[in-house]
Simulated assay, not measured.
Amino acid sequence: MEVPFFPTLFSCIKDLVVQQALFSTLEDWLVKHPKILKFSWENGQTPASSHRFLTLTVLSYISFTFVLSQLSRPSLSRPLLKSIAALHNIFLLTLSFIMALGCLVSIFSQVPNFNTLVCFPRGTSPSGPLFFWAYIFYLSKIVEFMDTLLIILSGSMKRLSFLHVYHHSMVVVMCYICLDSAQSSVPMVLVTNCVVHVVMYTYYLLCTLGMHPKWKKMVTDFQLVQFWLSFLIMAMLVFYHFTASGCSGILSWCFNAAFIVSLLYLFSDFHAKSYSSNAKVFKGN
């Protein structure tokens, strides 16, 4: 049994994309490269794949964030801090774009149909191009810890909220669990998240360069849309799991579902407090 509309749409888009002249070139670079094609996640063997590494990484991030936020911090010159922030934003902007593109090309190259895209068969091993890009995605979430350090060094402590620290620490755990359990629907979540991050880090880069674009609210709106899309994807995963022979990583799906619900609540609260208050101030003026 299949979800109506989506399988047909996926098939049409796939047929259109693979016929493009550029697709074969991108496929050679982003899918068929030996290190990508032969990638395999092996717990404790693949770099950064052990439970110890995950635990120490997350606890170190939380501990250093707390300690650095309480102590007197070294003062960096504003031009130097801006330069570091700009390079950081350019790196993550570029990486997010490459991950989204790599995962999309892998989907159209490796995934036969929409059913498989949403619901990996039971017993699927975390190997091949789709899980290579999921692995890079996982590592990128550790690199994003630099966001917190830049906030602390800039002295913008109001931005160092519970939402910020909770999101950065737990998303690493989520990505690890997705890889370790070969969770279904990972490619779709990866692509949507990377697209949002392209927009977000573009905004941060422009702010760092002193441009201050007026579409800050759109960044938060995009993040909220991403969470609602994640709910749709998870709902389809559950549908396929119980109407077919089951999906890979269904237990880890429970953790991710709870995490995304908590993020949706926190981001919605942030959105309401940030933009509702702004609207009131505007009306008062």
Rank of each mutant, 00 (worst) to 15 (best):
M188S: 15
T148D: 02
K141V: 03
R122K: 14
V198A: 13
L163S: 11
L139G: 04
Q183M: 10
G123P: 08
A134E: 04
N193M: 10
S156A: 09
S184V: 09
C175G: 12
Y201L: 12
Y138D: 00
R122F: 01
H164S: 14
Y138N: 02
K158F: 04
S185R: 04
Y203M: 07
L139E: 10
L130T: 08
C175Y: 01
V195T: 12
R122G: 15
M188K: 12
V191W: 15
I142H: 07
Y138A: 05
M174N: 14
F120S: 00
W133P: 01
Y138K: 01
L130W: 08
Y138M: 00
E144W: 07
Y176N: 08
M200V: 05
A134C: 10
C175M: 01
G123D: 11
V196P: 11
M200Q: 11
G155Q: 07
H197Q: 08
N193D: 10
V186N: 12
P121L: 14
I151H: 03
I177F: 00
F145S: 01
H197N: 13
T202P: 00
K141N: 05
V173F: 01
H197L: 15
S140F: 07
V195N: 03
P129V: 14
V171R: 04
H164R: 15
S154H: 02
Y176A: 05
V173P: 02
I136W: 01
F132S: 06
Y204L: 13
W133N: 06
D147I: 00
V186L: 01
M170V: 06
F131Y: 12
Y204I: 06
D180Y: 00
S140Q: 12
L190Q: 02
L163D: 09
M146N: 08
S184M: 10
Y204P: 05
F120P: 06
Y203F: 13
I152L: 05
